[in-house]
Amino acid sequence: MTNPDGAPALSAKNICKSFGDKKILRGISVDVAKGEHIAIIGPSGSGKSTFIRCLNLLEMPDNGTLRLDGQQVLDAELKTPTRSVRSLRKRVGMVFQSFNLFSTHTALENVSLAQRLALGRTRDESSTRSEELLKRVGLKDHMDKRPGQLSGGQQQRVAIARTLAMDPEVILFDEPTSAIDPEMRVEVLKVMTELAEGGMTMMMVTHEIEFAKQAADRVMFLADGEVMEMGPSGQILTDPENERIRRFVNALSGVI
């Protein structure tokens, strides 16, 4: 099955997830090509967050398969062992809505910790890499601060650096700007745009329509746990055929 060159960076098939009796995901499939950027939009409760969390197994799907670069990493009916979950997470980065930085560690340590503990890099290697990444996201002067001393936008940029330090093949973003003050969002979106331009494979749950238009190649519109529509971002975000999507996009863009 392995076909590194032609295979999608990430391939999800028929991902299903229920919480109790409530069906959250009713079989979602997507192939993400290498270097592709997909925006996931949809009303709250549509399953966007659950879906993206299933992609790095923060939620274990009830059913479905997951392939990374052609290699199967999850056959949900078989339930892969923990070791394999960790190896998947080394390859698939995650940026959370609420940042989830380690609150007792400095920005530098946040970025370095997993490089040492999960990737086995030396202290020097990891520090050098962390400094370089924190500079790249514009936080040169904040490396020794703890999350509590940083603004939301700064924390999210540390979180992006923390993920980049793992050299992931794909990065998942779960509403990365929703918990940030509007004027601080720009700096995070700028970093994300740079990543996209650099060719990183990205899946992003977002409400930022303008950003999605620019940065996303394709848009996935989720409703009630299903893909209602999937297509080029230009088409779906500027001229959606589906009435429900049109209303949703207009509402987010502030068009009445």
Binding site: N56, L58, R86, S87, R89, K90, G93, M94, F96, S98, F99, N100, L101, F102, S103, L113, A114, L117, A118, A159, R162, T163, M166
Partner: peptide, 16 residues
């Protein structure tokens, strides 16, 4: 929980 999720997302094991 976000702290544990943050750790999980960068592949830290349970012990770490």
């Amino acid at each position: 929980d976000g702290q544990r999720e943050g750790a999980a997302s960068v592949a830290l094991n349970r012990w770490d």
